[in-house]
Simulated scan of single mutants.
Amino acid sequence: MMKESSPASPREDTLVMAYLRSFMRCYMAGAGFNTRGMQNIGLVYAMQPGLSAIHTDPKKYRAALKRYVRHFQSHPFWMPCLVGIFLNVEKAVAAGRFPPAMLSKVKDTTAYTLSALGDSVFAGSLLIFWALLTICLLLSGQTAAPLTLGICFFIGLQVFRAYTFACGARQGFRFLERLKRWDLINWGRRIKYVNAGLLLWLWALIWPRPFDWWEWLAGTGALMLFARFVRTGLLSRVLAAAAFVAGIEVFPRFEQMIRGFLSL
């Protein structure tokens, strides 16, 4: 006669609930931001439930907390993933499979790498895509589509945070290999190309009427030229923006001069 499968042990139940609490605390990681340790207080706050479940010895628990009170900074969207990875490493430390002295080196490298990736893909691509598309839809008279878009992005972000936390907690640093295969850097570049198209759409919507195609083309060309100078470092962003705004102010007068000359 086959034995019935035994339910999960209290230890496993405690660990699951502790991981869930750590994940929920990731939403408050920025509340303790400070100029000295950056996000270190938020990181320790998120790690506390998981660490207390992994290290039952008070001495080892305090030692584990000290490993995360130093300077820490990364993109907030990656915080659940990093917390999951660190909890996986702490389980390996508790089992004697990972030396604690190595954690500080790999922790900083991983956090800074994901921070740069988050700034490029999320802040520099997806957030701008959402903002530009929402503005264009609203200026086009749409109301339901922008709201639906915002809800989908919000839900998608929560799914992303939960998925990366679960994968980080399950696979540890091995999950970074899967992230590498996602090719997020190139996807961020592709989204920026789409953003350029959305920006052209926005200009077409807000350009003064009557619409003269050659004026719009001249303005687009000037902005692309300034963007090129900024990217190559020949001109700062502030000076480029000031020059572009000054050009907008001077252009109507220059146009009147040209029209007056042609009418002679």
Rank of each mutant, 00 (worst) to 15 (best):
M2L: 12
E4M: 14
A8I: 02
S9W: 10
Y19A: 05
S22L: 08
F23P: 09
M24P: 03
M24E: 05
Y27W: 09
Y27V: 10
M28T: 12
M28D: 08
A29P: 04
A29M: 12
A29R: 04
G30T: 09
G30W: 02
G30F: 05
A31K: 06
A31Q: 14
N34C: 11
T35V: 10
R36C: 05
R36I: 06
G42K: 02
M47P: 07
P49Q: 13
L51V: 09
T56Q: 10
K60M: 14
K60E: 15
R62F: 06
R62H: 15
A63M: 02
A64Y: 01
V69G: 00
R70G: 07
S74E: 13
F77Q: 03
F77L: 08
F77R: 03
W78H: 06
P80G: 03
G84M: 03
G84R: 00
I85A: 00
F86C: 05
N88Y: 06
V93A: 10
F98K: 13
P100V: 07
A101K: 12
T109H: 00
T109Y: 01
T110W: 00
G118E: 11
D119Q: 04
G124V: 09
S125D: 04
I128N: 10
F129R: 13
A131V: 10
T134M: 07
S140D: 03
S140M: 00
G141H: 05
G141E: 01
P146L: 10
T148Y: 13
T148A: 15
L149Q: 11
G150V: 15
F154I: 08
I155W: 07
Q158M: 10
V159D: 04
F160I: 09
A162H: 13
A162V: 10
T164F: 02
T164R: 07
A169H: 00
R170L: 14
R174A: 14
R174L: 09
E177Y: 12
L179H: 01
R181D: 15
D183G: 01
D183V: 00
I185Q: 08
I185A: 08
N186V: 14
N186M: 15
W187Y: 15
W187N: 13
R190F: 02
R190Y: 08
N195M: 03
L198K: 02
W207Y: 15
D212F: 14
D212Y: 14
W214N: 06
W216K: 07
G219S: 08
G219I: 04
M224I: 12
M224L: 15
L225K: 06
F226P: 05
F226E: 05
R228F: 14
L235S: 02
V238M: 12
A241G: 12
A242I: 10
F244N: 05
E249V: 12
E249T: 09
F251D: 05
R253I: 13
M257Q: 07
M257Y: 12
R259H: 13
G260E: 08
G260W: 06
S263D: 10
L264M: 06
